[in-house]
Design a protein around this nucleic acid. Structure first.
Lengths: 198, 198
DNA sequence: CTCCATCTCGGACGGCTGTCCCAGACGGCA
DNA sequence: TGCCGTCTGGGACAGCCGTCCGAGATGGAG
């Protein structure tokens, strides 16, 4: 086995762990399955992590560091057009790897059940809201919105709840067409909150 | 042990299973933990269920049979008032046992990972939408709404996504005040969809 | 009362789990 | 070159897992 510093091994294992959880679920993500995915011997795992829980926590924290969807806006777009395009782009990316969103949901549930990890979901949410807020501010600037109907933070909350609701519902039904219809209905509401007052 | 017909034992075990999942999570809901909760010997479990998975499926199906929140409307209420009151009542009930919603989320994830149970989440969602639709029609009738802005089914979808989003987000943050603020922002949108056109 | 379907229940099975120990191999620095 | 901190990796541990067996208790039907 090629010799690697612990920090690199750590990231390898975290990424392998996420792949296994996405493929097999939290139930099948045993230490042995993860080291097999990473191609390292079993004992390496506990050389890097004190426990399996620590690794799960590291994986959950790792997730929220992945960057959001950067946006490239068309020239003469309305607020509604921009919101629709952004939301749909997020959704299409979601559809490429829905099992990852299921994995994130499972990890969240596991963390909130585990005392030593219970603080993480709140931090992840905070990270989401911050990243979303920056994105929204950027969009508002580009669209020349000067008298917003709602503070950025509140709009970010609105959007996050929307993606959360869509994620949960889609994972139950796997009905992408229904999801797109729902997006179509929600976009005007989000656009109204993002745009200028009245 | 008092002698009971299999059908009653079955329900006992399902309810005990739900209690254990709500308390310990799917991870801790072992067959042994469930029979201990129900107060029956281990072998009884496999006398009733062919496998643990079968019991999980039965538990998930059992959930969607629990009735929704019946509503008692005030006399001269606006559409918005009714929507707000209904949503807040649902939320207060949610807050009484949030660990049950977490349990349902975990069961949903587990089912959608397990081939023999993968069809259940879709059925549960269908059941939700149907029950919600009936409730909404009832509300519309009482409020004298004759030219709805949106078909019932679509409004039900809107509401379900809203509760899903709130559930997911609250479970991360456990911030009830933020949730109430979000409800306040969403209620007008839902009311507009529920009420008469324009 | 007798019979038999139904239900109870202690115990055991192999397999898998997270964690740990310890000997050994590597490779940068003195 | 020799040393020593860093990393590798085989193997083992106790414990828990889902599932199964088979003998015994029960109680309503005939």
């Amino acid at each position: 086995m090629t010799r690697k510093p612990a920090s690199v091994r750590r990231q390898d294992l975290v990424e392998a762990g996420l792949r296994v959880i996405a493929r097999e679920g939290m139930h099948g993500a045993t230490v042995r399955a993860i080291v097999a995915e990473a191609g390292v011997p079993l004992a390496t795992f506990h050389y890097i992590f004190a426990s399996r829980d620590e690794m799960i926590g590291a994986a959950y924290a790792y997730i929220s560091e992945v960057p959001g969807t950067g946006a490239a806006l068309p020239e003469d777009a309305s607020v509604e057009d921009v919101v629709r395009a952004s939301f749909l782009r997020w959704f299409e990316r979601f559809l490429e790897h829905p099992e990852y969103e299921l994995a994130i949901m499972e990890i969240m549930a596991y963390c909130s059940r585990t005392p030593s990890l219970a603080h993480l979901p709140g931090k992840v949410q905070e990270h989401y809201l911050e990243a979303l807020g920056e994105l929204l501010d950027h969009v508002r600037e580009q669209l020349g919105i000067t008298a917003p109907a709602m503070p950025t933070r509140e709009v970010a909350t609105l959007v996050l709840h929307a993606t959360d609701g869509l994620t949960y519902a889609w994972l139950r039904t796997r009905d992408s067409e229904a999801s797109r219809r729902w997006i179509e209905a929600v976009v005007p509401m989000l656009a109204a909150a993002l745009g200028d007052e009245r």
